[in-house]
């Protein structure tokens, strides 16, 4: 994974894992790699890796069971909320970029519908 050195790396790794949780690549209740393994997988500092799990736990997306490791939450509602949250972020980012191009949200919505029809045609 290529990191943006100007943003905290734990945030970037967290983003990656959050995506995996929402897409189901890491299903509810599945075991996540240990802190040290996470560091090796991403090529990051172990303290940074530990922070990733701390923050994910704070968000209720994973839980650490003593002696067993860290697991993705089995709380479906929490994952659904995460999906909504990430979708919201994507929409806001998209609208922000459209706005810089001088395109209002309504017009943007129209463009999305047209794009979809073209795809189906």
């Amino acid at each position: 994974m290529k990191f943006d050195p100007n943003r905290p790396i734990w945030l970037q790794v967290m983003g990656d894992i959050r995506t995996d949780i929402v897409t189901g690549d890491k299903p509810p209740g599945s075991k996540l790699p240990g802190g040290r393994d996470l560091a090796l997988i991403y090529g990051i500092n172990p303290n940074t890796a530990a922070r990733v799990y701390q923050e994910l736990e704070k968000e209720g997306l994973c839980e650490t069971r003593r002696g067993l490791g860290t697991f993705v939450t089995e709380d479906g509602e929490r994952i659904a909320a995460l999906r909504a949250e990430m979708a919201g972020e994507a929409v806001r980012e998209f609208l922000g970029r459209m706005s810089r191009l001088g395109i209002a949200p309504a017009e943007a919505a129209e463009m999305i519908r047209n794009e979809e029809e073209n795809d189906h045609a």
Partner: peptide
């Protein structure tokens, strides 16, 4: 990481 978090500054910066 604190430096990135607080100021958006990388080690290279």
């Amino acid at each position: 990481e604190d430096m990135r978090n607080a100021k958006g500054v990388s080690m290279a910066d």
